[in-house]
Nucleic acid binder design. Sequence first.
DNA 1: TGCAATTTGTACGTATGTATT
DNA 2: TAATACATACGTACAAATTGC
Lengths: 246, 246
Amino acid sequence: MSADPEWRTVRRVRTHEQVLIQIQERILNGQLRIGDRLPSERELVQVLGVSRNSVREALRVLEAMGIIDAHTGSGRDAGSTVAGRSTDALSNLLRLHMALAQFRLGDLVDVRIELERLAVRQASAEADPAELTQLRSLTEAMTRPGLDHERFHELDSEFHIRLARASHNALAADLMQALRDAVKNEMLAAFARVHDWDAAVASLTAEHLAILTAVEAGQGDEAETLVARHIRAFYDSVGGESPSSD
Amino acid sequence: MSADPEWRTVRRVRTHEQVLIQIQERILNGQLRIGDRLPSERELVQVLGVSRNSVREALRVLEAMGIIDAHTGSGRDAGSTVAGRSTDALSNLLRLHMALAQFRLGDLVDVRIELERLAVRQASAEADPAELTQLRSLTEAMTRPGLDHERFHELDSEFHIRLARASHNALAADLMQALRDAVKNEMLAAFARVHDWDAAVASLTAEHLAILTAVEAGQGDEAETLVARHIRAFYDSVGGESPSSD
DNA sequence: TGCAATTTGTACGTATGTATT
DNA sequence: TAATACATACGTACAAATTGC
């Protein structure tokens, strides 16, 4: 076969990839930090000895990953600066791979449940009063009658994401948001399959309230149990194939 | 203030973003599926009425996200095809955001523990005999004396990732791999801080064996407990600041 | 109003890689 | 083997839009 250890197959590295690698190295080294400005496109062209196209392709990739921001014009914001908001990029990536059926919805639900458990457990231990107040007003907003699917989903997502933020685990919170974004359409479709919408809203909201009450009381174990049941129950009632019970 | 609801600030959408959006829409719609070929760059130029650079910038972004593959030449592989390997892209994204100190290491460890628990629980229920055999030979490979840090980390990672794959939850497995990749350097640094390396290897390997034995026996709860302790113990011994006990 | 710095968009030319004939 | 067709890869050059001074 061709597995001769003497010879390594030549991996052709395109020039824009080399640019990408060099910039990424500087980020991983810590030479480039949040808020820093990169050299302008034309400077990079000179320093790296490549064409502007290659530089721009690399910058576009970094931009899509949420690593840098680019602004036209001169002064202050102009040029590319190291940014660091991951969530949109993460959501987008997960959503696309969901659409390519790379991940089953059931798998995603299972992962989400574990994240939710982590979130409520930690939130029970270290949520600020201000965060709890916000959460409580969110649950109240969900009791307002006549919410349509879209609006309810928004509030529902915000409740769960804020709960995750209250755990002070940024990664868990970002993943939670990405997962929610990625399955938004599936969730709306699931809402459409609900027979008695008002009753569903009432019970979901009641469950939110119970979870929040446990968190406020610092009862992490109770909150974990409640949130796991909350998600599993809804998914089982309208979600479709059960992921592990067949 | 500038928060007048009458006026929406114009969000200028760059052309390559519009190209990106159109392609993403087709993926989200299901019009483009894994294995499908996109029109060639020059065809897209004609159909979309934009320049070739804009098309290529969009394709580069999709490529970096692991959504498409690009190959030169004619026939079969040529042009851009919808691919769908997410893992590298996910790892890369998480690693960069780790470097930007967007996520604390302790947060990442907490998330990882939850994923590991999910993995071993599900693996206990539905791992194939073939997967279990592979895992067992992996644990044996780790008992070979004289492994250096790099090699041990490789085997360690592979054990945990294969365990996650054995759970048949693709998302959990991919996330696990991404998290492992993202903290590889931190792990190697932690290894360097270990006083008695041989003893550490011995106990880590023994723990792997115990976890695997529980999984083989279908004892999900036991496996969960063991894996959580396995990770927490190592992290507490060399990892640094304890994430939740202060 | 104008000027400078910067990104953004387009057009075109050439080189390179791959499969078919 | 050579020729051909097709596709990406890379570069240069120029015009437009945006922002600050």
